[in-house]
Design a protein around this nucleic acid. Structure first.
Length: 310
RNA sequence: GGCGAGAUAGCUCAGUCGGUAGAGCAGAGGACUGAAAAUCCUUGUGUCGGCGGUUCGAUUCCGCCUCUCGCCA
């Protein structure tokens, strides 16, 4: 049995990754299926704002890892990893090729190396750590963490309460120090180490990306983005802090709350999107090994991508 | 036309009881172990509207001018 073959199409939001993936999936003799690596498209009902592929595209080419859970339920990369693994096995079982498409750095990272470890955190420990944070804030977390070490650990972001909580949980659950856990984590094989994986970075210069983003945001608003957010809010998606803070969704919620005017809404979404693009590019620059780079305005022939899949 | 308020970073504004100024947002760079479109870190020289006056020294006080926003005619 051959190894599963994956082609990752990565790039900042709005450059046209999905369109390229559709062309490739259809163009390689109908042999490709699309696996989304998008942390927002996993939520049902977050359609317009996440630029989810439409029904026609989904009927034409099978898509995976979309609509995996309700937006009021928490979702994380470990769950994504399990869904993605299952999808890859299914697609490979059909003798087809996997086109991974997305811009969520951590989710893409799942294909390229370890993103989670095997440490199981007892819910009791998790509650205990949350309690420390609620009572004593970041300083309390750091004090607790440092108390478990010979020297205060420096290999984590000590200003990021979220990261410190994760580290503290692991130290409490295993009795090990942060640096040791980190070494163990980094020496693990990735979840897709048995697959053959190539990456393509798709980008385009700001002078053509930015007008494109503006058009896309206007189209989202015209398509009923505000109504989508109202419906999500009615279902309680504000309980999911990362879903309701996603680019565009946060701004529409601010509009619904009256903190942002309708006249400024598109502009605010645009600024948040540009900031996201910047963070995505930073991630792709430093965290993801890229086999091929191309500009969306001057794409090479499709056949040259098939070489990467063989 | 009269009265009042304002003019400070790309934007919104704070401040300096007179010793040339700082927040938020925006912009730029960076980090990344189950929230990742999340979260976090770094990064601020600007004729302090113009011209005069007082002063050792004015963005700050005074006068005039320009512009903006109110209110009254």
């Amino acid at each position: 049995m051959s190894r599963p073959r994956l082609l990752l199409i990565v790039g900042p939001t709005g450059v046209g990754k999905s369109a390229l993936a559709m062309e490739l999936a259809v163009g390689c003799g109908g042999e490709g299926e699309i696996l989304s690596a998008d942390s927002i498209q996993v939520y049902r009902g977050m359609d317009i704002g996440s630029a989810k592929p439409n029904a026609a595209d989904r009927a034409r080419v099978p898509h995976h890892c979309i609509d995996l859970c309700d937006p009021c339920q928490p979702f994380d990369v470990a769950q994504y990893q399990r869904h993605a693994r299952r999808a890859v096995e299914e697609i490979h079982g059909r003798g087809r090729k996997v086109l991974v498409v997305g811009g969520s750095g951590l989710y893409l990272g799942t294909f390229l190396g370890p993103v989670t470890d095997a440490v199981v955190i007892d819910p009791k420990i998790r509650r205990e750590v949350e309690e420390i944070f609620l009572q004593k804030g970041l300083a309390g977390l750091l004090a607790a963490l440092d108390g478990l070490h010979h020297q205060p650990p420096t290999c984590l972001d000590r200003s990021n309460a979220h990261r410190v909580m994760r580290a503290l949980e692991r130290c409490l659950a295993t009795g090990l120090e942060v640096a040791t856990l980190r070494r163990m984590f980094q020496s693990q094989p990735g979840h897709f180490a048995d697959c053959s994986i190539r990456t393509v970075l798709l980008d385009c210069p700001d002078h053509s990306l930015r007008p494109r983003l503006i058009r896309r945001i206007d189209a989202m608003l015209a398509a009923g983005f505000v109504e989508e957010v109202e419906a999500l809010r009615a279902k309680g998606f504000e309980a999911n802090s990362s879903a309701c803070r996603a680019v565009g969704y946060r701004e529409v919620l601010q509009f619904l709350d009256g903190t942002v005017s309708r006249a400024n809404l598109a502009e605010r979404i645009y600024c948040a999107t540009v900031a996201l693009v910047r963070r995505q590019r930073t991630w792709f620059r430093h965290q993801i090994p890229i086999d091929r780079r191309c500009q969306v305005d001057e794409l090479p022939p499709l056949a040259s991508f098939f070489d990467l899949l063989d």
